[in-house]
Amino acid sequence: MLVDYSPVSRIVGQLTGPGKRLGAAIGAAWPATVLVVTIILVWEFYTRYSGIKPTTLPAPSRVLQQIVENRQALIDNALPTVAATLSGFALSVASAFISSILVDFVRPLRRALFPVFIISQTLPLVAIAPLVVLWFGFGLLPKILLVALVTFFPMMVALVQGYDSTDKDMEWLLRSMGATRAQVFLKARLPSAIPFFFTGLRISITYAVVGAIFAEYSGAAKGLGIYMLAAKNNFRPDLVLAAVFCSALITLVLFGCTVVIERLSMPWEKVRKDDRK
């Protein structure tokens, strides 16, 4: 379940690293840049010379133009999405922490809770999102709940896996020093889980934005999701894509933030990488 995000991490890492080597960051980013530019160019030429209608597939230049023209509307709609994403994510991280600690201290709880969590992951979002909106209204709450629902499980699994990855000798050592169960957890198990926590965080943050947009799609006053729905109903795929661009941008920025926080909270990893160079 570990996804390799290393190219992105490397780019962000270079930007936030000790020397802030911008040149190196650009160097790490160029294969992806070339690919994206190529795709956009092919798309642009296709829309120009195939005679396809802009109401079916708008050209990227047109999408860009719409982004510029509708920037105020897009920002107005992006803000609630960001708010829902961040609050839902905060709720999810907090509850994943609490339940992972509970499960770590009370072993039978793990057997009781994990099947429930797994079932929660099999729920189709398409069916659940409208129900949650039906139960909790058009406000922020149903969005927060849906974001938490889709991001909780990867966080929880990462944390539990992280606790279990603790070096057995380290635990034995602490026990030999007379450490209590709580001390073993705080001094060995919790720090051992930090890298796993961040892997879970990076996976979850990409789900989180999608979760928020889906919740808005099912009913909201404002938000990128409802903006997309309205644009689609007005046969404006250019506006749909403009909103998609915004959501992708939000995801990338949030992802970059997790990488920065990760680097800041694990200084020992940084010295290891620097030494290896």
């Binding site: 070096d167 000798d169 050592l173 020093m177 001094k187 720090p191 930090i194 020992w268």
Partner: peptide, 21 residues
């Protein structure tokens, strides 16, 4: 194996036992 904690500096690894006490 040394079982040093990678997230602790040398001095903080050295005092682990005292910290537990």
């Amino acid at each position: 194996r040394d079982a040093l904690m990678p997230w602790r500096r040398v001095i903080d690894n050295a005092v682990l036992g005292l910290e537990v006490q």
